[in-house]
Design a protein around this nucleic acid. Structure first.
Lengths: 193, 193
DNA sequence: CGCGACGTTGATTTGCCTCAACGATTGTGG
DNA sequence: CCACAATCGTTGAGGCAAATCAACGTCGCG
């Protein structure tokens, strides 16, 4: 039996922002006007290679992944996004260029999403969000640097152990094949660890 | 004979900002008050592991590198920064935590640098810079994602060729040993390509 | 039920590392 | 100004970590 995903509210996103910095009632109202809930069913696409990435997504429930497919047909996962994570192809979203990445749903997933137009409007109406989103991306930049360092480091075992330690809740939910595609190693090798 | 590096001015940074978004005279004045020139001699450290990263640096002339040293003593380079590039340990700089990274000079290097206090003051005085630095970090995030993808991809040859194509001016100036440490492969193997 | 996705294990191959030796170049101090 | 050390690039031989290819069992799902 599926969970009930038809209930949607802006609350999780407001809670999330509140943890970073308090919002005035007026600002909460702006957020609720500029974000819309949307349900993506398992295996459905949020973004397809070649399209412009139209939305910035905040995951309320479920799990998405962003990935690229190389010339040999191998899938490389750049990012997972479970509850309270953001996911979008930043370059494509802000520059409105065609994306080389894909985003799809590993599970039935509820997001709160905003468009480029709505987000820039929000920046104008409440400049505070410029700072919030700057901090968000700074944090994910730091995380990405850490990941790159581990990836460059010698053995494949270390990045794997680090992943299941850093994201224990994720490594339960996600098939090993997906984790392998995230780490850049083969599923067979993950199995041998 | 060494180039004359004693001349320092805020001009290159103002030029840089102007290319992104026009600045009012008042804003230019604020920038020149909040950034200071500084010369780092070859092999001198801008940031040492264990210290808090005190400065955000804009390279006017020369070249810096940011790197980590792993438990085996191997050096892994996260980023080079030549003319018109920014370099800092973002996490350490904004959170004022001890850094696990090092930054040093590959050549005599002139930077324009600002402190956390000066930068936050600048954000307050001219909120426009929130947006500017949000865009800067978005761009470097996109670049980092691209690099991670290439690194995960199978052969070591592709990342190398991509590097010398993307940064031809850098690959002339920088020893192959440094490029190897950036790509996560051995100098010997770079030589065989 | 039967198909497809997933995980496991084994045998073989290979890309890259490690270790080592050797010129060429740079730069540094006596 | 020369001698010596340090840095850099190159090449060779050998070894290992992880990929590849393949076969098989399990599970969930249409």
């Amino acid at each position: 039996m599926k969970k009930d995903l038809t209930q949607a509210s802006i609350e999780p996103l407001l809670d999330y922002f509140e943890k970073i910095i308090p919002l005035a009632d007026e600002e909460e109202k702006l957020v609720s006007e500029r974000f819309q809930p949307r349900l993506y069913r398992k295996r459905h696409y949020v973004l397809q290679e070649g399209d412009v990435c139209k939305h910035m997504n905040f995951v309320v429930r479920g799990c998405l992944r962003m990935f690229a497919i190389d010339e040999k047909g191998n899938t490389h996962i750049l990012q997972f996004a479970a509850e309270n994570w953001w996911i979008t192809d930043i370059g494509s979203f802000y520059e409105r260029k065609n994306s080389k990445l894909n985003i799809d749903a590993l599970e039935d997933t509820m997001v709160l999403q905003t468009s480029f137009e709505n987000l820039t409007a929000l920046y104008d109406q409440a400049p505070k969000f410029n700072r919030i989103f700057r901090v968000l991306i700074e944090n994910s930049h730091v995380a990405l640097q850490k990941r790159l360092l581990q990836n460059i480091s010698s053995t494949a075992e270390e990045p794997y152990l680090s992943f299941i330690q850093t994201y224990p809740q994720l490594s339960n939910r996600i098939p090993q094949t997906q984790i392998a595609a995230y780490l850049g190693i083969t599923p067979e090798f993950v199995s041998r660890i």
